[in-house]
């Protein structure tokens, strides 16, 4: 009678299931559980994910605060400083109308800037995080 072979005493069989995941085996670096499902807690803690979150924050937080201030400031100026906004600039076009049209310009500019930033700085980082899982192989 042969002795039953005990399963490897590793709590993380996901890392290749080899017991000692010290080699540079690409399969062993996946942050997935024993069924191949992503290990979200480990992913959330991974350097790649933290970098993605940092890149999103440094763009989105200032940009959102900025556009909200610019828009609400414009509305407040129109409400509380009508004389200033009524100053003519080009022909009968006054400062308020000019600022209003600039709201359109700034919205389009910020939209395109974000789209470009996302394409260049966020999407590759998303791919880096995704490559930690078996997500794109199925």
């Amino acid at each position: 009678m042969t002795k039953a072979i005990l399963p490897p005493p590793d709590s993380r069989p996901a890392r290749g299931g080899r017991g000692f995941a010290t080699f540079d085996d690409p399969g062993s670096s996946l942050l997935v559980d024993e069924y191949g499902a992503p290990d979200f807690v480990a992913l959330q803690d991974s350097a790649d994910f933290r970098e993605l979150r940092r890149r999103i924050t440094v763009f989105v937080v200032p940009a959102t605060c900025g556009f909200l201030l610019w828009y609400l400031g414009y509305v407040a100026l129109s409400a509380y400083a009508p004389d200033l906004m009524g100053t003519p600039v080009i022909g009968v076009i006054n400062l308020g109308l000019l600022f209003g049209i600039l709201q359109f310009v700034s919205t389009i500019t910020l939209t395109l800037t974000y789209a470009r930033y996302a394409r260049r700085r966020l999407d590759p980082q998303v791919d880096a995080v995704r490559s930690l899982t078996a997500e794109d192989e199925a």
């Binding site: 499902a37 992503p38 979200f40 807690v41 992913l43 959330q44 994910f49 993605l52 979150r53 999103i56 998303v126 995080v129 995704r130 899982t133 997500e135």
Partner: peptide
């Protein structure tokens, strides 16, 4: 916390 991790990772990367 596990669900929170899942939601955060999934919302930013689409994993899962």
């Amino acid at each position: 916390p596990v669900k929170q991790a899942e939601m955060e990772v999934r919302s930013l990367t689409g994993i899962g």
